[in-house]
């Protein structure tokens, strides 16, 4: 995966003498001066990152405040009241559970689909067909969720949906899909597969293309069928990549695919029991309620849990890949 430079520890000059410290500062400034042109090029971007990513990080103080629009980030301090309110609310359990269930479904089914499709595509001998299929499978990836949501209404709407029309024409009752929360984890997973399988199998295909052809030739001589070659050569060689990508996905398990859910479910409260996730809950809070403090507390809890998960999964990836003499970790 992405190779990120390990942050080296900054030598702190605090313990050494004042003279050394001055020279440290001088060295630092000298380094900046020598590279002023490079810094000048990077500066606009770095300032933007500071304003839009770091300033909001200081804004998490709102989680400990009784937020008022007039006082902004400097509202009255209420300590942990927002968190007490949050942990006492029955909604918390629902949104956390839904986030984890939906993401688990997406990870498991999405991975199986992507790996399966990569294995099958790898067996297609005709390069033209293979390329064409790959390009078409990739197309849904570029569709915005609003577009998908609109298409979905075309299929599942009670009045004019294609599925309902089809069901009626073969003599079945019309069915209101948008009032059945139990169906939606399945529908959303199918959408996830539709949208991400084409892009997801690219990495797996890259691994398969890199496999030494001698392995297959040897298996061929030993009389292995194509199926056996897929099952006992290709699949095992994909396992490291599968584990790696899965662990990385688990690192983000507390972040719901809110673009999908906001566009498709939106304000349809009938579906909340199975589709309301942490992210959609926060957005609703932003739009409907005035309790910014509590919503920020939700966001902060999510960020902290997410942070722990990312580092935890990265640590596991690191330990696991070190045993294999490789390094797949992100940082």
């Amino acid at each position: 995966m992405m190779q990120l430079t390990k942050p080296t520890s900054t030598p702190t000059a605090s313990l050494v003498s004042a003279a050394r410290e001055r020279s440290g500062v001088a060295r630092f400034l000298g380094e900046l001066h020598r590279n002023r042109l490079i810094l000048l090029l990077a500066l606009p971007g770095l300032v933007l990152i500071f304003l839009l990513k770091y300033v909001p990080m200081f804004g998490i103080v709102v989680a400990f405040e009784d937020f008022r629009a007039q006082t902004g980030f400097f509202s009255p301090w209420v300590g942990l009241d927002n968190f007490r309110l949050l942990f006492g609310s029955p909604v918390l359990w629902r949104i956390v559970r839904n986030t984890i269930i939906l993401n688990t479904l997406f990870i498991v089914v999405g991975t199986i689909a992507a790996v399966g499709m990569a294995l099958v595509l790898n067996e297609i001998a005709q390069p033209l067909l293979r390329k064409l299929a790959q390009s078409i499978m990739f197309l849904p990836f570029f569709m915005g969720w609003t577009v998908v949501a609109m298409m979905l209404y075309g299929f599942f709407d009670y009045q004019s949906g294609m599925v309902n029309n089809l069901m009626q024409s073969i003599g079945l009752e019309r069915f209101s899909f948008y009032e059945q929360p139990n169906l939606w984890p399945g529908i959303l997973t199918a959408l996830h597969v539709w949208k991400t399988t084409g892009s997801g199998c690219i990495l797996y295909l890259a691994v398969l293309v890199g496999i030494d052809t001698q392995l297959y030739e040897a298996a061929e001589i030993d009389g292995a069928s194509r199926w056996q070659q897929m099952r006992f050569i290709s699949l095992p060689l994909l396992v490291p990549t599968v584990i790696l990508l899965t662990l990385l996905a688990i690192g983000r398990i507390f972040y719901g695919d809110f673009g999908m859910l906001y566009a498709i479910v939106g304000s349809n409260a009938l579906l909340y029991p199975t589709t309301d996730v942490i992210d959609t809950y926060i957005i609703r809070a932003l739009q409907t309620t005035t309790n910014f403090g509590m919503s920020t507390a939700v966001g902060l809890s999510q960020s902290v849990l997410g942070f722990i998960c990312v580092f935890g999964s990265n640590w596991i990836v690191k330990k696991w890949s070190e045993r294999r003499g490789e390094d797949y970790s992100l940082f």
Partner: peptide, 26 residues
Amino acid sequence: KFRNQLSFYIYFTMVFSGGLIPWFIT
């Protein structure tokens, strides 16, 4: 020389965020 520190400055925004509401206020 400081490119590693700069990388971390950018990398950190990938793993931690202030959340939606502070971002909105900002």
